[in-house]
Amino acid sequence: MSYGLAVGDGDRPLDDDQAGSAYDELYERYLESDDVLVPPAPRIRASGAVPPSNSPSPWIG
């Protein structure tokens, strides 16, 4: 089983409409793009939401 996790770093959206628009824009930019993958922001990596790049498994941190 796998799943996608959306994690944000920055100012909180003011309302649901702004949050939805931001999500749609980020989804299109990063998930529907053929561009090179963007590494996670340092604050997101530090949170533990992303396994270390040398980890053999996402379950081992």
Rank of each mutant, 00 (worst) to 15 (best):
M1S: 08
M1R: 08
M1Y: 06
S2D: 01
G4L: 10
G4E: 06
L5E: 07
L5M: 09
L5G: 01
A6H: 06
A6V: 09
V7Y: 04
V7F: 01
V7S: 03
G8I: 02
D9A: 12
G10M: 02
R12D: 05
L14I: 04
L14F: 06
L14D: 12
D15F: 12
D15A: 11
D16L: 07
D16W: 07
D17C: 05
Q18F: 03
A19R: 11
A19H: 08
S21D: 10
A22N: 07
Y23R: 14
Y23L: 12
D24Y: 04
D24V: 05
D24H: 04
L26S: 10
E28H: 07
E28W: 04
Y30V: 00
Y30C: 01
Y30G: 03
E32H: 04
E32I: 01
E32A: 06
S33R: 00
S33D: 03
D34W: 08
D35E: 10
V36K: 15
V36P: 02
V36A: 15
L37A: 13
L37Y: 01
P39I: 04
P39M: 11
P39F: 05
P39H: 13
A41V: 03
R43T: 00
R43N: 02
R43M: 00
I44Q: 02
I44V: 15
R45E: 06
A46D: 13
A46I: 00
A46E: 15
S47I: 06
S47A: 14
G48E: 04
A49K: 11
A49E: 09
V50S: 08
V50P: 00
P51F: 03
P51H: 09
P52Y: 15
S53F: 14
S55A: 15
P56I: 09
S57A: 11
S57H: 15
S57M: 12
P58G: 09
P58L: 09
P58M: 09
W59A: 11
W59Q: 11
W59Y: 14
W59L: 11
I60Y: 13
